[in-house]
Simulated assay, not measured.
Amino acid sequence: MRAKQFFGITVLDKKVNEVGKVEDVDIDTETGNITTLIVSLQKGILSNDLIEVGYDKIATIGDCILLNTEISKEEEKEEADEEDPKQVTIEVEDE
Rank of each mutant, 00 (worst) to 15 (best):
K43Y: 12
V39H: 05
I90G: 01
V25F: 00
N68I: 00
E78D: 08
I65M: 10
I65P: 06
T35A: 05
E83P: 00
L67A: 02
E70Q: 09
I38Y: 01
V53Y: 03
V53L: 09
E75H: 08
T60G: 04
L50V: 11
T35H: 00
L50C: 05
T60Y: 07
T29R: 08
E74H: 08
G44I: 01
L12W: 09
T35K: 08
D84M: 00
E23W: 08
K86P: 00
C64G: 02
K15W: 00
Q42M: 07
I34R: 03
D63G: 15
E75P: 02
K43T: 13
Q5N: 14
I38K: 11
E91S: 10
F6W: 15
I9S: 11
V22S: 02
Y55K: 13
A80M: 04
K4V: 12
I90W: 03
I27A: 02
K21F: 07
N33P: 00
S47G: 09
Y55T: 09
T89F: 05
D24T: 02
V39W: 03
D49L: 10
K57V: 01
I61H: 04
E78T: 08
A80T: 03
Q87V: 03
I9R: 15
V19Q: 06
K14N: 15
V16T: 11
E23H: 09
K21G: 00
I58R: 05
Q87S: 08
N33M: 06
D81T: 03
E52P: 02
L46W: 11
G54N: 13
E95D: 12
L46D: 12
G32P: 05
E23N: 10
V16H: 13
T60D: 13
G54Q: 13
L67Q: 07
L66W: 02
C64M: 03
G54W: 00
V11G: 03
E78V: 10
D13C: 08
E91H: 07
K57F: 10
K4G: 09
K15S: 14
G62L: 05
G62S: 14
E83L: 15
E30G: 03
D49Q: 14
E83Q: 07
S40N: 11
I58S: 04
G8A: 09
P85C: 01
C64F: 13
F6Y: 15
V92T: 07
E78C: 00
Q5I: 02
I45C: 03
I90H: 08
R2P: 14
D81F: 00
T10H: 05
D24W: 01
D84K: 01
K21H: 06
E74L: 09
